[in-house]
Amino acid sequence: MSEPDEHVRYKAYLDEFAQVADPDEAGLIGRVLADPDVIMAQAAVLRHLDRRAAVLCAEPGWEEWAQVMARAVVRHPFLIRRLREWSLFRAVTLRLPWQQDDLLAASDWLQLKAAAGPDPDALAVLADRGRTKRIRSTARTRLAKPSRE
C-alpha cells in the first residue's frame, strides 16, 4: 500500500523548508500554501514557522523575519495568529513589554509555552488565570522553583 499523495508532498515540503535559503523562504511558503490540500499545506508551513521562530526568537533579526513571514501568510489567519503568538512569547521570554490581556487571550499552546518559561510576571498571571488546569499547574510549579537564570 502506497503512502497518500498529501503525505508525500508534506514530507517533501518539510525537506524543502529545511534547505531553503533565507531570501527564498517567503516564496517557498507561497508555493506551499498554493497546494490544493489547504490543511496539509498550512500544517507544513506551521511546522516550518515554529521551527524557525524557535531559532530566531531571541535574535536581532526577529522583527524583520516576522514581518516577511506575516506578508507571506497574510491570507491564513491561523498562521498569522501563530506568528503573533511567537512575538508575544518572545516578549515574555526576553522580558520585553507585553500585555496581560494578550497573554490571557492567547491560545493554550502559547499559554503552556509561557508557563514553562522564566518570566515571573507571566508565571504569576498564568498560575492564577491560565486557561487550563495544566497551564495553571505548570506555572505554579515554575513559580515554586528557584530561578537559575
Rank of each mutant, 00 (worst) to 15 (best):
R136G: 02
G30W: 00
A122K: 03
L88Q: 06
A116C: 06
L46W: 10
S87C: 09
S147H: 06
D119W: 04
S87F: 00
W62E: 01
L33A: 02
G117Y: 01
A122R: 04
D5T: 11
V8S: 04
L104R: 09
V20P: 02
A122G: 06
W86N: 07
D108P: 00
D22T: 15
V20W: 01
D128Q: 15
A91D: 13
A70T: 15
R84F: 03
E149N: 11
Y13T: 04
I39E: 15
R148W: 04
Q99K: 12
A105H: 11
P4L: 13
D102C: 05
T132R: 12
P4T: 13
A106D: 06
D35S: 08
P36Q: 09
I135N: 05
F78T: 13
D5P: 00
S107I: 10
P146N: 07
L123M: 09
E25V: 09
R81P: 00
K133P: 01
G61R: 10
A26N: 09
E149Q: 12
L126E: 03
Q42I: 03
V38W: 05
V73Y: 04
D119M: 06
W98K: 07
P36N: 12
F17R: 13
G27S: 12
L79M: 07
D119E: 13
C57K: 12
L33T: 04
R131Q: 10
A41T: 10
A21G: 12
A115R: 08
G27T: 12
Q67S: 15
L33W: 03
M40P: 04
K133Q: 13
Q99C: 07
Q111L: 08
A21F: 02
E59T: 04
M40R: 14
P23W: 09
L110H: 08
W86L: 06
L49V: 11
P118Q: 15
R84W: 02
K113A: 12
P60D: 12
A18F: 01
R9M: 01
M1F: 06
R134T: 15
S137L: 11
S147Q: 10
K133T: 14
V45I: 10
G117C: 05
F78V: 14
D119Q: 12
A66D: 04
K145R: 13
R51A: 15
K145L: 14
P120S: 09
A127M: 10
R140C: 05
A66P: 00
L123D: 04
R51I: 08
R129H: 07
C57H: 03
W109A: 14
R81C: 10
E64I: 03
R9Q: 03
F17D: 09
Y10M: 11
A58D: 10
E149L: 13
P120D: 10
F17N: 13
D128C: 11
P118E: 14
Q100M: 11
R140V: 03
A105F: 02
L126C: 06
W65K: 08
R81K: 14
R47S: 14
L104D: 07
S87A: 15
L96R: 15
G130K: 06
R90T: 07
L94A: 11
R9F: 02
A124C: 02
D35R: 02
Q111G: 06
L123F: 05
L28D: 11
V32L: 07
D37H: 13
L103A: 07
